[in-house]
Simulated assay, not measured.
Amino acid sequence: MAIHGLWVINKAGGLVYQRNFGEGLPGLTSNEYLVLAGTLHGIHAITSRLSPTGPSSGAQVIEGETFKMTIMLTATGTKFVLLTSLAETTADVVLQKVYEVYADAVMKNPFHTPEMPIRSDGFDRKITALLG
């Protein structure tokens, strides 16, 4: 299982959490990550309107030549994005577990302001335990 990165994007398209795992991703600046998250948010919004058969939740998987992005949209509009190798088959299950960790460690934290960057050591520790 090769997981390269995890992003959490708020409902306005702002990157509130970003973490790389291993050496699979190039070193980008924080501004570059913010631009990528905003662009992905826009692409996701457009793809939710493109379905010829009715309402859609937008793109769920975007594949490149060497990587795959799996996107999970929550009921509140928060997006969880997992960057993996093409061979990864359990990304949906992993994202669901990340969402459960987010709900327990971030949303139950009385000191966290919704839609703001996630600065929680407990969340980081649980993500490290889950993803490595």
Rank of each mutant, 00 (worst) to 15 (best):
L82M: 00
P55V: 12
E32P: 00
G13P: 01
K68H: 09
T70E: 02
V35R: 01
R119I: 11
V101I: 15
I9G: 02
Y33V: 00
T70A: 10
I9R: 00
S51N: 15
V101M: 01
L95F: 11
V94Q: 05
L82E: 03
I118N: 00
A103M: 10
V93Y: 15
G64T: 11
E88T: 06
E65I: 14
T70W: 04
I118A: 02
G122S: 11
V98I: 12
L131C: 06
T128A: 11
G13C: 13
V8H: 09
L131I: 04
I43H: 05
K108A: 12
S120T: 05
H41Q: 12
A2P: 14
T29W: 04
T66K: 08
V35P: 09
E63G: 01
R49W: 02
D104G: 14
E65G: 15
T47V: 11
L36C: 02
R19Q: 13
L131S: 08
T74Q: 10
V98Q: 03
N109E: 08
L130D: 13
G132P: 05
L28A: 00
V106L: 05
T66E: 15
I118L: 04
R49M: 10
F123P: 02
L36K: 01
S120Y: 03
L28Q: 10
G54V: 08
G13F: 09
S85P: 10
T89C: 02
T89M: 07
K79W: 04
V98N: 04
M116E: 14
G13N: 11
N20V: 06
A129K: 14
T128V: 12
K11I: 11
F67W: 12
V101C: 01
L25C: 06
P114C: 02
V101K: 00
K68T: 09
P114Y: 14
K79I: 01
K126L: 14
A103E: 14
L25V: 04
